[in-house]
Amino acid sequence: MYSKQEDAAPAPPATGIPMNSGVGGNTYYHAGTTGFALPGQAPLAAWSTGLCNCFDDCGNCCVTCLCPCITFGQIAEIIDRGSTSCGASGALYTLIMLLTGCQCIYSCFYRAKMRAQYGLQESPCADCCVHWCCEPCALCQEYRELKKRGFDLKLGWHANMERQGRTPATMPPLMHPGMTR
């Protein structure tokens, strides 16, 4: 009638990060096969390309090394789903770079946002460490990931949505003209 504990599948190892379960005690995040996931959720996916696979797209690698604000702007427009333009994001990136030299802090937030949107692992290390140590490689990896997910980053968010046959959620509703003479 009752199954023995030995017959049950072993639980994944706990990582030690407490999470309040709301029912008499703590549960813990478990290590999945490809990343960390909450119990009942799918494990996090791996990036489609490695951090140092820049030669998969030499053209983007050269653009990113010479002018990273262009690549960052293209990435930010897609991640923000068209709410900010490529030009505005690239200009802000450049301004932060010229005034403080800490543009990697700004760009690491977009990496974290991208990982959350697509369920990607935080690898090979923390987002800020990746951008601090190798900003061009991180931007190229993010660019390649979005490209492999079907985006043409040169087109921007709205043109990608039109190409895919979807109406962007950020488009305002059509307004009928008011009273005219």
Rank of each mutant, 00 (worst) to 15 (best):
T180I: 09
W157C: 00
E6P: 00
I105R: 10
H176Y: 05
F151L: 04
A126L: 14
I75L: 09
V63I: 15
F72A: 04
G82H: 04
G82F: 04
A112Y: 05
H30M: 06
T94L: 11
T64L: 03
V130S: 03
M175G: 02
Q141M: 13
D80K: 14
C104P: 01
C133M: 12
F55P: 04
I96Y: 03
D80P: 02
E77T: 14
N26I: 08
R144D: 05
T71R: 00
G22L: 07
L146I: 03
G101W: 04
H30C: 06
F109M: 12
A46L: 14
C125Q: 11
L99T: 15
F55H: 10
G73K: 00
S123M: 11
E145R: 02
I96R: 02
Q41G: 05
I105H: 09
K154G: 08
P136K: 03
L155D: 02
M171R: 09
K147W: 07
V130F: 01
R81K: 13
D56S: 13
A31S: 11
M175R: 09
S3M: 15
K147C: 09
G59T: 14
D152T: 09
C129T: 12
M161E: 13
M171C: 07
Q141F: 02
T15Y: 03
D57A: 15
G87T: 10
I75T: 03
P168Q: 03
N26R: 08
Q103I: 01
G178N: 06
C86K: 10
S107K: 00
G156E: 02
M179V: 14
C140W: 01
G82A: 06
Y118W: 15
Q121V: 14
R115C: 13
P168L: 01
P168C: 10
C134K: 09
P168I: 02
C54E: 08
Q103W: 00
P18Q: 09
L44K: 15
Y110V: 01
Y106G: 00
A11K: 12
P12Q: 07
F55S: 13
P68L: 02
W157N: 00
I75Y: 01
A45P: 01
E77C: 12
Y28V: 06
E6V: 08
H158Q: 10
A46W: 11
S85I: 01
G32E: 08
A45M: 10
E162H: 10
L146Y: 00
F72R: 01
L95H: 11
L139S: 03
P10G: 04
E145H: 06
C102Q: 15
D7P: 02
C52R: 14
R149V: 04
Y143M: 07
C108D: 08
D152P: 01
C65T: 06
A37G: 08
R166K: 15
A11Y: 08
